[in-house]
Amino acid sequence: MIERVLAKRIVPVVVLDDAGSAEPLAEALLAGGLDIMEITFRTPAAEESIRRIAKTFPEILLGAGTLLDEDQVSRARDAGAVFGLAPGLNPKIVTKAREAGLQFSPGVMTPGEVEQALSLGCKLLKFFPAEVAGGTAMLKALAGPYAHTGVKFVPTGGITSALLEAYLRLPIVAAIGGSWMVEKSLVNEGQWSEITRLTREALAAAADAR
């Protein structure tokens, strides 16, 4: 999974109110050149949306986000998710994900949480909430004592297209998680061509940041 994430360096964070939007959204992202996405378990439509995309677009590296309990981990894996994320670090969720065969990235924002995640065998970590937690300055500080461990971060929370380049220029950042190219209003209004355009734009900016 880390190799796939490093290849694109952008993980769109999707909130779907209607599972009927799942397939056209996946098509729009693929048309823009992006074959990875995270669907958050914040709405009742999340599980069915994952199931539909996993069945129709197996080429997409499909993740489930905001996994806050063990039941959600099981449901996400059964629906077809291949990786999971959470805003925080809960050892029980990490263990459950491992048992379910779901690659998991817990959320961290402090040195203590980074060390706990590493002790649990997690090396691809969600840095959340990125901007509020200190942004690129905090990640540079964390890189000092932890970069040699092989840990990589996916900062998420408050990141916009204008901030993308600053984050991706940090060696310790594997990718960024963002929602500007898949904003709820764009999805709910079916603006698939605009989502494709924004995705292409984001990928071009990510390529420039290498």
Rank of each mutant, 00 (worst) to 15 (best):
A130S: 12
G107S: 03
A166G: 03
V108R: 11
I2K: 13
I195C: 01
L163A: 11
G178W: 02
F153T: 07
F104C: 03
R98I: 13
T110L: 11
L16F: 08
A22Y: 09
K123E: 04
G80A: 03
F57M: 07
R77W: 02
I195F: 00
A19L: 09
I53M: 08
A174D: 05
E131Q: 12
E3A: 14
V11A: 03
P24A: 01
E194W: 05
G107W: 04
G178F: 01
K152T: 11
A31H: 03
P155L: 14
L203E: 11
G80W: 03
I93H: 08
G32L: 03
A26D: 01
L29D: 00
P44T: 10
G158F: 07
L68Y: 13
L186I: 02
G134L: 10
N188D: 13
K92T: 09
M109C: 15
F127K: 07
L6D: 06
E38M: 01
E59Y: 08
P111F: 14
L85E: 00
V94S: 00
D208N: 13
M138P: 06
V13N: 01
R200C: 09
E183A: 14
S49F: 11
I176E: 06
T40R: 11
G107A: 04
D71T: 15
V154A: 13
A7C: 09
A141G: 12
A204L: 12
